[in-house]
Design a protein around this nucleic acid. Structure first.
Length: 219
DNA sequence: GCGACAG
DNA sequence: ATCTTGTCGC
């Protein structure tokens, strides 16, 4: 599939932040509610700066695997909180470009709108591909929230600077919540519905679990 | 064995 | 993010 190059690669923190500030204006917070093909993305780190990126495409209704791609790369930016996306983007884009099918939704391992400048990895991937995208974080990042109720499906808003930027969502009884935020071309209600639909069995969405497995054990 | 969770 | 050890439970 096609991935647009909307910016040069940043050579400083200030450049990276200004790219996020500019692309933030491209994010759309509404979109389709159903998705025929759902992709999960993840990156595994090895050694000093090697990364393996994996993209797995599943049938949106049966969750049967349709296609997967693995790409090797290098960490592309130093670790700076809020600029995490720049570490992984080149390897993820490389993997996406090698897909022969175009997914209808990207399920990203990380944050979207719930980010210091409102432009986390899920927003970045959504805008570069023009596809609906959502982010699922495993630990709280920004904003404040109450713990959601104990039953599967319970959620509470994540509020940052007076705005709702995501939801803490209980995907299974007796497990820690996940943190859902919009990436691109999706509403928060739809993002929440999709994450719940993709977590019938485990805490994390099936597409992310598949991608995580593949990135760790390429085969 | 795998998943969740602890330290 | 990674790695390692161990417990509990399905």
């Amino acid at each position: 599939m096609q991935v647009r190059r909307l910016h040069p690669w940043p050579s400083s923190v200030a450049e990276a932040e200004s790219i996020q500030d500019r692309l933030r204006g491209h994010v759309e917070l509404t979109g389709p509610t159903g998705f025929a093909l759902v992709a999960g993305l993840d990156v595994h780190y090895h050694g000093d700066d090697a990364v393996t990126a994996a993209v797995v495409v599943l049938d949106g209704s049966t969750l049967a695997p349709v296609e997967h791609v693995v790409a090797e790369g290098r960490v592309a930016f130093p670790y700076v909180p809020g600029l995490f996306a720049f570490r992984e983007l080149p390897a993820l884009i490389d993997a996406l470009q090698r897909l022969t099918v175009t997914p209808d939704l990207l399920v990203c391992d990380g944050y979207g709108l719930a980010h210091p400048r409102g432009f986390g990895l899920a927003c970045h991937l959504g805008v570069l591909t023009a596809l609906p995208a959502l982010g699922v974080g495993k630990t709280p990042f920004i904003g404040t929230h109450e713990p959601p109720g104990p039953e599967r499906g319970a959620w509470t808003p994540i509020v940052h600077e007076g705005a709702t930027v995501g939801r803490a969502l209980r995907t299974q009884r007796g497990v820690k919540p996940v943190y859902v935020s919009q990436g691109h071309r999706i509403s928060l209600d739809t993002a929440t519905d999709q994450v719940l639909r993709l977590t019938a069995r485990f805490r994390l969405p099936e597409p992310i679990r598949h991608a995580d497995h593949l990135a760790r054990h390429p085969s």
